[in-house]
Structure formats: structure tokens, C-alpha cells
Amino acid sequence: DTLSIHQLAAQGDLNQLMKYLQQGDFLIDLQDEWGFTPLMWAAAFGEIAVVKYALEKGADPHILGKERESALALASVRGYTDIIVLLLDHGVDVNIYDWNGGTPLLYAARGNHVKCVETLLAKGADLTMEADSGYSPMDLAVALGFKRVQQAIENHVLKLLQSNRV
């Protein structure tokens, strides 16, 4: 009974979360001390049922944490592709960046999440955006030896080149 709405979201406890929200739907966008909403906690821990429910309840997927953390970036760190698709379908910016100069694509590449990289690229992620340290998604893939991520980026570039041919 004492768990916060953020903990309930992270733990995927949909029943308790629904009970909590009986106090008022506005609580769905309640921010914790880091500025994180229940949706952000659920996205970070891969709790897709909670993400779906929160979005149905009108949770705002655009809210950023105190260091510009986004639900999309948090899902990308761990490679939760299905959550990424849901968030993008709700209109979040695929190229949102944070204090680190981090974009969802950079986090997905850093984590070797190939499917996630492919999805973000297909949804228009900018592969030229670099982290503050100057690393692009391709630089990361090469530096870390993530061949499949490298290949996914190369395939995307080839597609772009082909579609630009007159």
C-alpha cells in the first residue's frame, strides 16, 4: 500500500496502479524528485502493459526529466522496441536529446540493441547527431565492435541513397 505510483509503474503492478489513479487521473503525470513520471519509470523497466495503460489514460509522453531524460531514451537504453514504437506513435520526438547529448539512437547503438536501432532509423532518427563527446551512432558501433548495429546503419544509409536517386 505504501509504494509510490512510480514504483508501481516500474514493477508493472497494473491493478495497484489503477487503484492509485482512483484518487484522480491527474496523478498519471506526477513527477518524482528527478522529474520522472510513472510512464517514464514503466518505459525504463520494460513494463509495456503499464505504458499502454498510462497512454490510454492520457499520460503525456513528451514530459522530460530534470536532465532532459525522456521516456523514449529510457526505453532505448534497454532496447525495449515495442515501447519505443508505442511512444513514437504518440508523437514524441525521435531525436530528443538530453544533458549528455544523448539521443535514443545513440543509446540504442551503445546498448547493441539492433532491432531498436532499426526501428528508430525507420522512424526517422537522425544518424548524424553526435553525443557531446563527438561520437555518432556509427562511431559507437565501430568502437564497440557491434557489427550488427553497424550493418543496420549501413543498410539504412544505402536505402536513403537509393530513395534519393532520380
Binding site: 520522472f36 517514464m40 525504463a44 544523448g102 561520437y135
Partner: peptide, 21 residues
């Protein structure tokens, strides 16, 4: 029984441990 509390999510330093560009 109550599940343990989850620690706050965070975004990692992307280039930690990588050589400078």
C-alpha cells in the same frame, strides 16, 4: 510480501570507457 524497491532509472554516459574522438 512486498517486492523490493526499484532504483531510479537513469541514462548512462554514452562514451564512458571509450577513447576520445
Amino acid at each position: 510480501t512486498q517486492m523490493p524497491l526499484y532504483t531510479s532509472p537513469s541514462l548512462p554516459n554514452i562514451t564512458l570507457g571509450l577513447p576520445a574522438t
